[in-house]
Design a protein around this nucleic acid. Sequence first.
DNA 1: CCAGTCAGTTTATTTTCTGTACTGACCATG
DNA 2: CATGGTCAGTACAGAAAATAAACTGACTGG
Lengths: 151, 151
Amino acid sequence: MKWNELAEQPCSIARSVAVIGDRWTLMVLRDCFLGVRRFEAFQERLGISRTIVADRLRRLVGEGVLKRVPYQDNPTRFEYGLTEKGMELHPVVMAIVHWGDRHYAGRAGPPLLHRHKACGHDFHAVQTCSECGEMVDARSVETRPGPGAAE
Amino acid sequence: MKWNELAEQPCSIARSVAVIGDRWTLMVLRDCFLGVRRFEAFQERLGISRTIVADRLRRLVGEGVLKRVPYQDNPTRFEYGLTEKGMELHPVVMAIVHWGDRHYAGRAGPPLLHRHKACGHDFHAVQTCSECGEMVDARSVETRPGPGAAE
DNA sequence: CCAGTCAGTTTATTTTCTGTACTGACCATG
DNA sequence: CATGGTCAGTACAGAAAATAAACTGACTGG
């Protein structure tokens, strides 16, 4: 299988991974959630080649995850912001953060704290069931083919 | 920045992405959560070169995400299973699934359904605050440097 | 006019991925 | 006891992608 075929698989993970499953794409998204909006800023923060930054931003805009918005004329300059679809990647990013905090934070502790504005506390993401509200883990889930499964 | 430097960044996303932020690695993990355990099965299901399967499995074992366990002698054959650390990636995978279901399921619906054994309902993952239990989205979170931040 | 900002593109090199074929240890069948 | 099948890999060479460094072009500010 090749990259482009991944998006056509009858699997939501394959389809999502075809869009965001790339090292630098995920790092770009991290920066988006931290408020980075400009090409130069992405390039400088990530320390990667401009080619890659340009490519990843282009892809994400093409997928509707980011929007490219002019912020000045003469010359026209653009900045990149999360769309609603992009915002919905927040749980993915938070889940990755939590896993990283648990397994790769040194004894110093996590590099970044997250505060829930609604309650005011520093928190970490907990995954719950949309139906009963209880916590969900790998062992408490059963999968079966859904309506969009392969023929 | 290069791949190997990513793991040394004072950022839990960078550190996690250095381990799992790769197209095929994520697909391997998907299959692990679906119960796939053997080399041949990974290779056949993913349809990718054996070299990559071998490499990704080796990396994941090296990181303690998977464990390589002999399941027969003469010749000794191994299978791969999620460790506890690997199981903790479940929220990441479920968050990716949910995003894919929302944005890439055709009108046929999601390819896979997930049932929460505890309550018996089909569900999707909801991310909540560990402190107050309310739902969390991108707009309700504030970040600030934590104890493990860069000097 | 000289330097600086900003969003990219170009180019050549290096790295990684990929398919195909192979190994090596077995087993089951005729 | 040869033939084919299973299984977990490895070896290798060609194709694809990532990379750094330099360049473009349209400005602004002093």
